[in-house]
Design a protein around this nucleic acid. Structure first.
Lengths: 252, 252
DNA sequence: GATTCACTACGTACGCTGTACGGTGTTCTC
DNA sequence: GAGAACACCGTACAGCGTACGTAGTGAATC
C-alpha cells in the first residue's frame, strides 16, 4: 500500500545526497527552519559536547522541535552529517586576489583545513564515508583548481594533489584531535601524554623484539618540533613533489 | 562498596590499551577463548557483514558464548576494536632480507597497507580514534624504521614519513572502500559511478559559479589512470620528497 | 584435604539510539 | 470550498552498549 505520511522513506528511494532533495516543495505550510539553521545547530552541539551528543533527539530539541519533525528536513541521520560537513567547509576563506606564489597559497589553504579540524575535532571521524560533495566543498575544489591553473598540471594531477593534501590534513588533524580528546578526558598534560607514548615505545624496545625501534630511540634525540612545524613541512613536501617532475621512474 | 563481580569496570580505572591488561590472571578457571580467537571472529564478522554487524552480541554469539561473557576478555567495545586493528595489522609480510632499494621496499609496504584496506574495507572507518599501538603495529613500525636505517634521516623525520605514507594509504583506501560499499549497496557499476560523479561536477560547473572547475572539465581529458597507478605515484612522491633535501625554505 | 576467593560464565534489565507509523493541523493549488 | 501536499509530533519498536547480580569452577593457601 502506498503511504503518504511524513516518514523518511515512504517506500521511495531516498537520494544519496541531501542536495539532490529540494529544500522545500511548493505546497503546504512553510517550514519553520532552514537547512543552514539545522546544520549550524548540529555543528554547535558537536563542538560543545562531542559528536556522540549529536543525536536526532538532541538536535531536534536544540531547534525547539519534536524529534520526528527533523525527518521533514533530512531523510536520515546520514544526510544530517552531510549538512554538518558542508557547514564547516564553509569556513574556508579564499583571499582574492590569491597570493602570487602557488606554494604559499596552497599551504595557507591546508593550514585553514587543519584549523577547521581543530575547531571541530569531530570532523575527521565523520569524514570517513562515501564522499558527498556539497556546495561549500565545490567552492573549495574550484578555488584549489584555480590556484593550480598556471602550474601545467593536467586536471587529473590537480585532483590528485587535492586528495593528497586533504587526506594528509584530515589524517593529521584526526590524530591531533584524538590526542586532545584523550587529554580532555583523562586530564593529563600534553607533556605527560607525550612522555607516556615514548615510555610505551621504550618498554617495547627493551623487550628486544624491535631492534630498529630501539636503535631509533637510542640515537640522538631529534630536535623538538611542534605540530605546526611538522604540518607545514609535510604539506610543502607534498606540494613540491607534485609541482616538480618525478625523480626517477616509478616502481618495479 | 567494593565490587568483585565480573563487570567491565568495577569502579576501577579501565586501561586505555587492551595490552595493558594481562590476558589471563593466575587464579580461577582457564578462559575458554583467546584474544586472538576473539579478534579473528570479530574481523571475519566485519568482513562478511560490515562493521555495523560487529556488536557485542553478534561477536559473542559467533564464539558460542553469552553476550556478557565477552566482557571477561574485553572491558569495552573500544578494546575489541583495538584487537581488530592489530589483527589485520598482522597481515603485513616483511621480506627478509629487505629489498636493497629503499623506495621499492617502502612502496611495497604501502601497497600491502592498501591491500589490507581492500580486504577489510571497514578498517579506515575504525582507525580514526586515539592511536593505540598493539604488537603488530609495533612490528610494522620497527620494520619501517629499519628500511630507513641508511637514509640519514633522524628518528623524527622517519616517523613523519611513516605518518605521511600511512595517512595517505588509509585515506585513499577509505575513499575506495566507501565507493565500493556504495556500489555494493546500490548495484551500480564502477563506470556508472564514475560517470555520476563527473556528471555531478558538470552540473555544478554549468551553474557558472565554479569557473575553475569548468575550465578543468573543459580542458583535455587527462589520460585514464587506474587506482593502482595513482596510488603508486602518490606514495613514491611522498617517499622521494622525504628522502631528498627540501626544495626552498618553508612558508612565510 | 578443606577453605578461600579470583575468575569465568551469563540472564536480566536500563537507558539510549535511529526511525517506522499514523494522526492532526496548516497552507497551498485548483 | 475541496483536496492534496506538507509540517509537526506522540508513540512504539528493535537493537545497541553495558551495569549488576548470581552461580559455578578450580588454583592457591592453609
Amino acid at each position: 500500500m502506498a503511504r503518504s505520511g511524513p516518514g523518511p522513506d515512504s517506500g521511495a528511494r531516498v537520494p544519496l545526497s541531501i542536495w539532490d532533495l529540494p529544500e522545500q516543495g511548493g505546497r503546504g505550510p512553510r517550514p519553520k527552519h532552514s537547512r543552514a539553521a539545522i546544520a549550524a545547530a548540529a555543528v554547535s552541539l558537536a563542538d560543545a559536547e562531542g559528536i556522540d551528543a549529536v543525536t536526532m533527539r538532541r538536535v531536534a530539541a536544540a531547534l525547539g522541535m519534536g524529534t520526528m519533525s527533523l525527518y521533514n528536513y533530512v531523510p536520515t541521520k546520514e544526510h544530517l552529517v552531510q549538512l554538518m560537513i558542508d557547514e564547516v567547509s564553509s569556513e574556508y576563506r579564499y583571499p582574492d586576489p590569491a597570493p602570487p606564489d602557488h606554494r604559499v597559497a596552497l599551504l595557507d589553504l591546508a593550514r585553514q583545513g587543519w584549523g577547521i579540524t581543530q575547531r571541530h575535532p569531530w570532523l575527521p571521524r565523520i569524514m570517513q564515508r562515501p564522499p558527498v560533495i556539497g556546495p561549500s566543498a565545490l567552492r573549495y575544489i574550484d578555488y584549489f583548481l584555480g590556484l593550480l591553473s598556471g602550474s601545467g598540471l593536467d586536471a587529473g594531477a590537480k585532483m590528485e594533489l587535492l586528495a593528497l593534501v586533504n587526506g594528509f590534513a584530515i589524517s593529521y588533524g584526526g590524530v591531533q584531535a584524538a590526542l586532545a580528546e584523550e587529554r580532555a578526558r583523562t586530564g593529563v598534560s600534553e607533556q605527560e601524554q607525550a612522555a607516556a607514548q615514548v615510555a610505551g615505545l621504550v618498554t617495547a624496545a627493551v623487550s628486544g623484539r624491535y631492534p630498529n625501534l630501539a636503535a631509533a630511540l637510542a640515537g640522538p634525540p631529534p630536535p623538538d618540533r611542534d605540530a605546526d612545524e611538522i604540518f607545514d613541512r609535510c604539506v610543502l613536501r607534498l606540494i613540491d613533489a607534485a609541482l616538480s617532475p618525478p625523480h626517477g621512474n616509478g616502481g618495479p
